[in-house]
């Protein structure tokens, strides 16, 4: 584990400390590989990373077509939870998986703190 990923782990730990957050991952936007993660429970971190990367990429095509440029924030709302993805620096994506009652506003604040420190 590198110093960078250790730093990420600490920052991600703050996100997973928010009530309703099941896990947070920093991943490579291109290939969806995991750079750092803080996942609770039995979720497969590689699956979260790959799906978040793919999701973000697909949504980016749509927002660009709409003239909005790449998204700063993507939220997939499902029946039993949410998946959030937003771009970090150097081609990374931050992904968060959470429960239904997740405080989206709080997650945004914490994720933005990570982005500032990246």
């Amino acid at each position: 584990m590198t110093a960078v990923s250790i730093n990420f782990d600490r920052l991600l730990g703050r996100v997973t400390g928010i009530r309703g957050v099941v896990g947070a991952v920093v991943l490579d936007a291109e290939d969806g590989l995991v750079i750092a993660e803080s996942i609770l429970g039995g979720i497969r971190v590689n699956a979260v990373a790959a799906l978040a990367a793919s999701m973000y990429r697909r949504v980016s095509h749509t927002t660009k077509a709409a003239g909005h440029g790449p998204p700063d924030f993507v939220q997939l709302q499902a029946e039993n939870g949410v998946l959030i993805a937003l771009p970090g620096s150097c081609g990374t994506i931050l992904a968060v998986i959470g429960e239904l009652d997740l405080n989206i506003g709080l997650v945004k604040i914490e994720l933005n703190k990570i982005l500032v420190r990246q």
């Binding site: 949504v59 790449p70 998204p71 924030f73 993507v74 997939l76 499902a78 029946e79 039993n80 998946l83």
Partner: peptide, 13 residues
């Protein structure tokens, strides 16, 4: 991710 059916997606830019 065992989240059930998706309901909506929102994007911000």
């Amino acid at each position: 991710l065992k989240l059930g059916n998706w309901i909506w997606i929102t994007t911000e830019s």
